[in-house]
């Protein structure tokens, strides 16, 4: 089983038929929490595996940035999904999703502090000890900052990656969203991130609303994000790029157009 390569798409049940019809597809990602490692794979995913398509489980609820130790049952589930899919790696986020007994319902940012680095590193090591394959970590998009940042984004991420040996899942739309909403220069961040550690890249759409750019995954990929993909590839082309779409699915021709735009921007083969 090879690592992710080329242009891929986030597999979702709603677009399983579309994904199955992509002739050149070599990799997809699936939300790990939606797969039962003991049961049959979701319709369509087993067929992709039989075709030799790489399937990367993407966790969204481990809460690796949570102050409490990561839940061993959640880690075991992610490990089980990786084995069921014979995945070459798994991915999760540098974020927390619950605290004080409450679920936030989405990925929340950490303070860029030494304490938070230590917290994430400890949880990532706990997870890595139980996972059968390497872990890639994704920095998230957030609308707000904590008041007490000690590090900038590049140092914060690099310290976590260095201390854990984890790969980087760079979400270019998140880089755009954070620069737009929290200030900072997106291309300057690309210059400082360890691009050689990228396992693959996420690209997604979003929309402006209420004075903020929202990383919705339900809108088209904006020009600014595609431009940033080109900026990234000019510095170092990642081995794989994945389009994430999580709702308001457009007509197939439009989704194919977005995949083709990723191929054009990166120079990877067309998959449609």
């Amino acid at each position: 089983m090879s690592g992710p390569s080329g242009v891929g798409i986030g597999w979702r049940p709603e677009i399983a038929g579309f994904v199955a019809g992509l002739p050149g597809l070599r990799f997809v990602e699936v939300v790990a929490e939606g797969v039962n490692p003991a049961g049959p794979l979701p319709d369509g995913l087993a067929e992709l595996r039989e075709r030799g398509v790489t399937v990367v489980p993407h966790g969204v609820r481990l809460s690796l940035g949570g102050a409490e130790p990561v839940d061993p049952h959640r880690v075991a589930h992610l490990a089980g999904v990786a084995e069921a899919l014979a995945a070459p790696l798994v991915s999760e986020h540098i974020a927390f999703v619950r605290a004080g007994g409450l679920e936030a319902g989405h990925l929340l940012p950490l303070p860029r502090s030494r304490e938070a680095v230590a917290t994430v590193v400890a949880n990532v090591r706990r997870a890595q000890a139980e996972l059968p394959v390497p872990l890639a970590l994704e920095p998230i998009a957030a609308l707000f900052d904590w008041p007490d940042d000690e590090l900038d984004e590049a140092d914060f991420l690099t310290e976590i990656l260095d201390a854990t040996g984890a790969r980087l899942l760079l979400d270019v739309a998140n880089v755009h969203a954070n620069a737009r909403n929290r200030g900072g220069d997106a291309t300057a961040l690309l210059d400082r991130l360890p691009l050689e550690r990228i396992a693959y890249v996420h690209v997604a759409g979003g929309a402006e609303a209420g004075g903020f750019y929202h990383d919705t995954h339900t809108d088209p990929v904006p020009t600014e994000v595609l431009d940033l993909v080109r900026e990234l590839c000019a510095r170092r082309r990642p081995p794989a790029l994945l389009l994430e779409r999580d709702g308001h699915y457009p007509p197939a021709a439009e989704l194919r157009g977005e995949l083709d735009a990723l191929s054009a921007a990166s120079g990877h083969p067309v998959v449609t």
């Binding site: 949570g66 102050a67 409490e68 927390f96 619950r98 605290a99 004080g100 007994g101 409450l102 936030a104 929340l108 303070p111 304490e115 938070a116 917290t119």
Partner: peptide
């Protein structure tokens, strides 16, 4: 950090 994460959530 635990208490501050809980306050934020």
């Amino acid at each position: 950090l635990a208490a501050r994460q809980a306050e934020l959530v």
